[in-house]
Simulated scan of single mutants.
Amino acid sequence: MKVTWAYDRGDHRDTHQVDITDPTALDRLLRQIHERDEPVVVTIYDEPADDTDLPPGVQVGLGHATHAFVVHITDDGGYDTDPDVPAPATAISFDLGGVPTEYPADHLRLRPETAIQKAVDSL
C-alpha cells in the first residue's frame, strides 16, 4: 500500500510518501502523524492498475486533538461516523495534499483512535 500526506508550509508543500504492507507499521506511522498536532489527510491506497485519478483506498483525517475522519475511496464510498461522537461546533481544516481543506462537522464524528484503527483494518 502507498501512504501519502502533505502539509502546506506557505512557500512550499512538505510532501511524504511511503510503502507499507505491515499493519503494525501503519499503526505506528499514523500515530506519529497524529501526534504532530497538524491536521492532515493521509491517503492509503493500492498501486493504481490503470490511469484512474485515485485508486481505491481510504483517506484519514488526523492531527486534530478530538476529531478525525475516515472516508472510503470507492464507487460506493462514504464517511465512517460514530453516532456517540458529537460533531465539532464548526468545520475543521485539514491539509489535503498540502492544500488546506475544510471538512464539514458532520463528517468529523470519529475520535482519532477510532480513525487510526479503521485505517489499519483497511490494510
Rank of each mutant, 00 (worst) to 15 (best):
D27T: 08
E102L: 02
T66G: 12
L26I: 04
K118V: 03
H72C: 03
D53S: 13
G10I: 04
D14G: 09
E47G: 07
G98A: 01
D19R: 15
V58H: 11
G10E: 04
T74L: 10
P112E: 09
P39D: 10
G63Q: 04
T90P: 01
P88A: 08
R28I: 05
D19I: 13
D76H: 09
D22K: 14
V120E: 05
V99C: 06
A89Q: 06
D50R: 13
P100K: 06
A6H: 05
V70D: 02
R109K: 10
L29M: 09
R13N: 03
L26A: 00
G63W: 02
V71P: 02
E47N: 13
A49S: 15
Q17G: 12
T101D: 08
D50Q: 12
T81I: 13
D51P: 07
P39M: 12
D19V: 14
D80Q: 04
P88D: 05
E35F: 00
E113G: 09
Q59N: 15
L29K: 13
D75V: 06
I20A: 10
V3A: 10
A89L: 03
V41A: 14
P39L: 11
G57V: 04
L123S: 02
K118C: 00
T24H: 12
P48V: 12
H64W: 07
T24M: 04
T15K: 11
G97W: 05
D51R: 15
V58Y: 04
T21Q: 14
D19A: 14
K118P: 00
L96H: 10
D82P: 09
P88G: 09
D27A: 05
P100M: 08
D121E: 09
I33G: 06
V120S: 07
Y79G: 01
P56W: 08
V85K: 07
D22Q: 14
L54F: 05
R31D: 04
L110P: 09
K2S: 14
W5D: 05
P48K: 15
R28S: 12
I92L: 14
H12S: 12
D51L: 15
P48Q: 12
H64M: 05
F69Q: 05
I44F: 04
D76V: 07
D37M: 09
V85E: 09
H12A: 10
P83Y: 01
Q59H: 11
T101Y: 08
